[in-house]
Design a protein around this nucleic acid. Structure first.
Length: 429
RNA sequence: GCGAGCGUAGCCAAGGGGUUAAGGCAGCGGAUUGUGGUUCCGCCAUUCGCCGGUUCGAAUCCGGUCGUUCGCCCCA
């Protein structure tokens, strides 16, 4: 072929799809804004060390999925594989959390992981990311989770399920980890290959292995929730209580262990059965240790990320795509008329109308055909005669009625025209 | 990184060794040189993802490669 194609695992989001993305973003903005969250826009590239230290060297994301390269100055740079780490870096660097203060932040943008693409998984994907930094309160957990469910349900998504778990604090986890390793070691030879490997590197991850025999073994493993200290247990109970108070459905999944090292206490995932193997639409949790670990003040935080591709995939299964129809389509022929058309289009747009101007210069019949397809309610016709008299034919495309207006009257009455079009559109739909 | 399936126009496709590569949608042009949504006519792949091999002959068979889909792993 010889033409250059998009990189594997990346894709173009074409004009027919962008209205859907804009709709999601509008809903998200609305929900976040009225919950006091502010947008932040950190860079997409960071020093590699940020992710190594933040996400954890033992994780798959850092171990084998990062886009890492040297820049011309010999620095090791990485395209962010997720958004939280960079956002936390920005918070620390700009001193956004003075003692006791709370920051509510959100961001939407691409992240990159070098993985084999499949349904709901790409090398460049987009996340809507929300973080509440500076509160240890279980109300913070509940607030953040509630926003996620609100966005999802406002978009019309149903039949989602939420898994909830607590992985405790550092010492809870250490004790549990020891107990788990002790339990699993006698079964070592029966575990799947990956899990054997994790027994020393990252034993908690064995819990949500999909290998059949491993699952059987894990059935009788000690329960993480039994190893929570009193504070952790209390926190978890409170979170559950608050979610119940808010009418948010969830199920406790003691084997939910998320793949990023920084999580503490609350961990949750919202899933859909309609996504295939990549069922998680939204995942998140608390990360009370991360900020200190990255050199900031000892500050608790909780957040989540929604996968935009997976979300839009679900929405596409659901409803017809929103389309942006034009209000007015301008048809013109002849040099003077075409100049008039341009001026008219400009003026009407300034008055708030959506106007498409036919640029073809082809026969009126052809131009009307396009006018029809544009979804416009009204059509303006300017030919030699109209140009000479400074008039235009205003044609209503749904009735075929046509009236003559002077161009100046039309512009002066643009507001009225706008409400007429609005009314006509209501009747039509 | 591993396994399996699939690549024919912008989209959906038929064809499974012999030369003219069906059909539909969309698009463009015309019937209708100043009036649309119907209809009719015409145009729209010297080429079947790419490279190489087998053959007198390859979209068709073989090898490789790239892409894609589904799954594993992992995650959004």
């Amino acid at each position: 072929m010889g033409t250059i194609q998009v990189l594997r695992g990346t894709r173009d989001i074409l004009p027919e799809e962008t209205p859907l993305w804009q709709h999601v973003e509008a809903i998200a903005r609305l929900c976040l804004q009225r919950s006091a969250y502010q947008e932040i826009r950190p860079p997409m590239i960071e020093q590699t060390a940020l992710f190594e230290r933040g996400i954890g060297e033992a994780t798959d994301v850092v171990g084998k999925e990062m886009y890492t390269f040297e820049d011309r100055g010999g620095r090791s740079i990485t395209l962010r594989p997720e958004i939280t780490a960079g956002l936390v870096r920005a918070v620390i660097e700009n001193n956004l959390v003075a003692q006791g203060s709370v920051q509510r932040l959100w961001h939407i943008g691409p992240a990159f992981r070098y993985e084999r693409p499949q349904a709901g998984r790409q090398r460049q994907f987009h996340q809507l990311d929300v973080e509440l930094i500076g509160s240890r309160s279980p109300r913070a957990d509940a607030e953040v989770i509630a926003i996620a469910t609100e966005i999802l349900t406002t978009l019309g998504l149903k039949s989602l399920t939420m898994d909830l778990n607590s992985v405790g604090n550092g010492s809870d986890r250490q004790r549990y980890r020891d107990a788990l390793v002790e339990y699993l070691t006698p079964f070592k030879d029966e575990l799947d290959e990956d899990s054997q490997d994790r027994l020393t590197r990252n034993p908690l991850r064995i819990l949500d292995s999909k290998a059949k025999r491993t699952q059987e073994i894990v059935q009788d493993a000690p329960d993480l929730l039994d190893y929570l200290g009193d504070d952790s247990k209390h926190h978890f109970d409170q979170v559950q209580q608050y979610l119940t108070d808010l009418g948010i459905a969830y199920q406790i999944n003691p084997r939910l262990v998320r793949g990023l090292d920084y999580y503490t206490h609350t961990a949750f995932e919202i899933q859909s059965a309609d996504l295939g193997a990549q069922a998680t639409v939204c995942g998140g949790g608390r990360y009370d240790g991360l900020i200190a670990q990255l050199g900031g003040p000892d500050t608790p935080a909780i957040g989540w990320a929604i996968g935009m591709e997976r979300l839009t995939l679900l929405l596409k299964q659901l409803n017809a795509q929103p389309k942006t129809a034009m209000d007015v389509y301008i048809v013109s022929r002849g040099e003077a008329a075409e100049a008039n058309a341009l001026t008219l289009a400009h003026g009407l747009r300034q008055a708030g109308l959506a106007v498409e101007m036919d640029l073809s210069g082809s026969a009126f019949g052809k131009q009307f055909k396009r006018a029809d397809r544009s979804g416009a309610i009204a059509c303006l016709v300017i030919g030699d005669a109209e140009a000479e008299q400074g008039t235009t034919q205003l044609k209503w495309l749904h009735t075929g009625q046509q009236e003559e207006r002077t161009q100046t009257d039309l512009l002066a009455g643009a507001k009225e025209l706008r409400s007429q079009i609005l009314a006509a559109r209501q009747v039509n739909s």
